[in-house]
Amino acid sequence: MKDPTPRGRPLATGEKGVIVYGILSVLLVLLVVQLWLLTATTNAWLGGDDSVVLPAAVASLVCLGLNVGLLFHIFRLE
């Protein structure tokens, strides 16, 4: 099927706004996941259980990586 949008056409502000809203919702979900990881890990760690600290740190860094990637995607819309 032929792509109705010619490649390289600059996006209209309204279209960019929709994309930013979509990306923003994913960012917020990832942020809530990170917040949950941080509180759960802090609680376990202060209680003397440090077995979860490494996997939680890795998961949090993965979320950060995704967030940074999505932010770059927003700036590529310019």
Binding site: L27, L30, Q34, L38, T42, C63, I74
Partner: peptide, 24 residues
């Protein structure tokens, strides 16, 4: 406004990850 808000969200995400790494 949304784009700038996204920047702050990523900043907070960085702060959370820093907290997690400092615990490690």
């Amino acid at each position: 406004a949304r784009r700038d808000f996204a920047k702050y969200v990523v900043l907070v995400s960085g702060a959370f990850a820093t907290g997690q790494v400092s615990m490690l």
